[in-house]
Design a protein around this nucleic acid. Sequence first.
DNA 1: GATGAATGAGTGTTCATTCAT
DNA 2: TATGAATGAACACTCATTCAT
Lengths: 219, 219, 219, 219
Amino acid sequence: MVPHAKTARRKQARPSELVAAALDLFVEKGFAATRAEEVATRAGVSKGTLFLYFASKEDLFKAVVRENISGLYPEWSVELDNYTGSTAELLHYCMQAWWSRFGDTKASGISKLIMSEARNFPELASFYQQEVVEPGSALIRRILQRGVDRGEFHPIDMRYGVYVVLAPMMFLVTWKHSLGACLPAQTGIVPQEYLRFQIDTILRGLARPAAAPPKGSAP
Amino acid sequence: MVPHAKTARRKQARPSELVAAALDLFVEKGFAATRAEEVATRAGVSKGTLFLYFASKEDLFKAVVRENISGLYPEWSVELDNYTGSTAELLHYCMQAWWSRFGDTKASGISKLIMSEARNFPELASFYQQEVVEPGSALIRRILQRGVDRGEFHPIDMRYGVYVVLAPMMFLVTWKHSLGACLPAQTGIVPQEYLRFQIDTILRGLARPAAAPPKGSAP
Amino acid sequence: MVPHAKTARRKQARPSELVAAALDLFVEKGFAATRAEEVATRAGVSKGTLFLYFASKEDLFKAVVRENISGLYPEWSVELDNYTGSTAELLHYCMQAWWSRFGDTKASGISKLIMSEARNFPELASFYQQEVVEPGSALIRRILQRGVDRGEFHPIDMRYGVYVVLAPMMFLVTWKHSLGACLPAQTGIVPQEYLRFQIDTILRGLARPAAAPPKGSAP
Amino acid sequence: MVPHAKTARRKQARPSELVAAALDLFVEKGFAATRAEEVATRAGVSKGTLFLYFASKEDLFKAVVRENISGLYPEWSVELDNYTGSTAELLHYCMQAWWSRFGDTKASGISKLIMSEARNFPELASFYQQEVVEPGSALIRRILQRGVDRGEFHPIDMRYGVYVVLAPMMFLVTWKHSLGACLPAQTGIVPQEYLRFQIDTILRGLARPAAAPPKGSAP
DNA sequence: GATGAATGAGTGTTCATTCAT
DNA sequence: TATGAATGAACACTCATTCAT
């Protein structure tokens, strides 16, 4: 009844090993082009075993997303709540964190993959929309709202304000995994600099106009 | 023995007809999901004939990209040269033009296709880089430089300034052909509003700060 | 545009060849246990070719039924219309015809197969019900009704009358392809004798009681 | 070291529990469609344990058939000996009893199973032939002979007379577990009415013709 | 004995590509 | 040139069976 120690340890490890192998391959070759057996082999198990843990290839993909992306949000959410500095600094901080925890990581390949294959796997697309896009957008919205509420930003139409932040991030990731991957190394974008420039510009674009010239300026 | 005039004309047209059909289908369904026979049928020929003109489906893809990436640029270049209004207006104008002449067009599907398939077709990626990305970036750079030169924008690091404009455009196109195509109609982005918001923000971000009210300017 | 003679002849022949091979194998091994490739191989083509002519294995099965069973009904229907003898004779004749044209034929294996696999292929079951059982029942009903109308049979509840004829037929076929196929040859049923006995009994069971003692017998 | 009483009892019961579970499932879903694990689960053991007691699924099937084919016959045999009414009534009675004790029971699924799988398990087929078909036929033969002996039936060729009774029964059971299970509920046969009609007809078919009305019998 | 994790052969279906005509 | 019949490799998923624990 009680599983044996060795077996149990293996059984617990299997899903993560499979998810890790799947992440590698999905990012490297795309969802459709990755064969289930290849994932299994890379994880050191047989094809059958893969389906012991994941009901389908799509299920496996969902696990990859959950384990590599969705899981990032709670941490960010907490950090956001506890942040005490200016919203401008917060945005800078978040972008740096996003880059180091996600953009600069294999996981960002998933975002690009979704862009590529959404049309052919609508089920995955809507899963990703719910699991990643919406929470992510909500997080950005909270940052922007914080800026507005604290008088740092002027009022923002949130339907589109979110994209002011999101678009440069997604572009970077998409570029990195497509054209950027085909170009000679020095040709392209240096992500850190790219992001700094984008945020600086965005922040100026969102900032509340400087208060009317201070005291004494009027007669 | 001499080919019938009509037949001859047809024969010459074949490749273009096939490429046109392929463009439609690749944009509509993606590369992998488009079946060779479907392309042939839409072009009014048999499956065998397709392979008479293109050695493989990949070859056809390359032809599609090459034949459809072309000169929107000269027109824009001229317009840009002749423009007399403010650079802010110019940027608004260019974005509208870009959307109606490209973004809202089948051609934008090509950009998305390139993003999706770049890894599988590296030669195409660099071809696209040279033929599209670089001229396009140059155009944007000219606009920004114009703003700087006329004192409308503050100085800009052009290596990244370009992306401030480019990223929102590419994101829009990518989104439209991927997640945007899978979502219920009203859920998503309204491109015109999206673009207006982005440009307004960018412009504020790029704008030269209003001259500090000169001291003693008040009565 | 015009298919070449040899090719055309082949193309026309393919479906029948495949159906013939499928009949053999379905009867021999059952529907589920017959592999599509085996059918193709026996028909002398590749697996791919099979699916060129039949969209699925179930489709192939339907073709087998249509070509080997449904096609028998029109002939019977005509014979039935034109028959001038007594209904008892007609029933004898039909049974003999049924046996020689169907029961004693590989096609009868299909009926047994349906009995075996109906539960697992409900789609096939209802197809067979419509395509075979119902027309067959209608034919039997017509015979019985003829007997009633001509005063040869006493009135019959047709909901169950049909089964009086059908049950012995189906039993024979089922038995032949199951237990009967496993028994030493002489042990079993001799179909012709079996059928004769059944019909004789049934006919007595259905017959109108002999007319009241002929006229004049009474005072 | 000495096995716990309960455990021991359990161990002994295991095979029967497995066979019982298998009976349910084989009858419900057929042999091929029943998964070994499902049988094990229903019996409350693990998949591995199943194969501890039965070398293969086929072996399990054989055990199911063998364990469930058994003695309804002695009871009937006695009833038959003691019956004092007319043979027509006896036949009616036996049919009702057969339906309620067998046809309407899981056990009838076994007969259908045998029909379906006989070709794949010829030993089972002959086992079934000896254990079930032959004793059953003998019983029917006794009933018919009784009718003949008492002058209720006209002389019968027993080689085929038996089937006049048997065929409708087997057809009913086969139908019930195949097509009948796939049809909308009201479409099909109502067993009780079906049986009544069959027997009535059969009895008329077997009955000794009423003595010709003796001449001059009328006043 | 009992478990349940692991296996891997097996199969319907698709589709780019070939080639005889 | 053009056709379209034919091919066969590819692939996700299932499940009876094994075996280390």
